[in-house]
């Protein structure tokens, strides 16, 4: 039986490793920039998941390393067996109930985030229709946005701090409309219209990525979303989606 001292020392080492792991999970630059309110919620969820996961991984590795250190076969033990321990009901109940509670807690929290991300905000919301086809995206701005005739563009412009409801369709095969800076995606499926809602909150240009294999041109099915000040968005819409090279 290992001494209490070595178990305590290992426990302290595990706590330090956990602290370092959690610090690293904040220090490492995991994500692209946050450009939507949804991105902030999802990134927070990610950090909570990391904080919950790291102690469990450290626990597993610590027990393995401690066992290798203390219980490895020493000379003279070649024919010996360990103690015949068959189980411990209290321990088994504990490691069934505790993970179950933790997992239900995490998944409940994830539903809260999901609800927040998908809820219609109180303010103004515009609709943009997105069409995927091999191997390009086009964006239609309906009369509700243009105030006149609808128009279609290969450029995606969005007003900053206004909610947008994307209505997504496909002309041929399945594509996925992914904006990593928003942390949002959904498939464009032939025959149905899918939706997601984003509230951009950072002016700039970000990649739009097709994230579902759609054929030989899949790797190059890219577009850009330009998040601009509402006044600039109005001007762009009035010009009928005239191509603008500069953003900001």
């Amino acid at each position: 039986m290992p001494s209490r001292r070595s178990i305590a020392a290992t426990g302290v080492a595990a706590l330090i490793a956990t602290a370092i792991g959690i610090a690293l999970s904040y220090a490492i630059h995991w994500f692209p920039v946050q450009a939507s309110t949804q991105a902030k919620n999802t990134d927070t969820l990610y950090h909570v998941l990391a904080i919950a996961s790291i102690p469990i991984f450290v626990l597993v590795v610590t027990v393995i390393l401690f066992s290798v250190w203390h219980f490895r076969m020493k000379p003279g033990q070649e024919l010996q067996d360990g103690p015949p321990i068959h189980g411990n009901t209290r321990l088994e109940v504990l490691w069934t109930a505790f993970p179950a509670a933790l997992l239900l807690g995490l998944v409940s929290y994830s539903f809260v985030v999901l609800h927040d991300n998908e809820r219609k905000p109180a303010g103004k919301e515009i609709v943009v229709e997105v069409t995927g086809q091999q191997f390009a995206w086009t964006y239609q701005y309906p009369p509700s946005v243009t105030g006149g005739a609808p128009f279609s563009s290969t450029q995606l412009y969005l007003p900053n701090n206004e909610s947008v409801d994307f209505a997504i369709r496909s002309k041929d095969v399945i594509h996925a409309f992914w904006i990593p800076a928003f942390r949002l995606q959904i498939d464009a499926v032939p025959g149905i219209t899918t939706h997601y809602r984003a509230t951009p909150d950072r002016i700039g240009s970000y990649p739009v990525v097709c994230n579902l294999l759609c054929g030989v041109g899949h790797s190059t099915m890219r577009s850009t979303v330009h998040v601009v000040a509402p006044a600039r968005f109005e001007a762009w819409v009035r010009s009928g989606g005239a191509s603008q090279s500069s953003t900001g």
Binding site: V113, L114, P180, L184
Partner: peptide
């Protein structure tokens, strides 16, 4: 399994 994270 966490839906908002999976969506990303």
């Amino acid at each position: 399994a966490m839906v908002p994270f999976d969506i990303h």
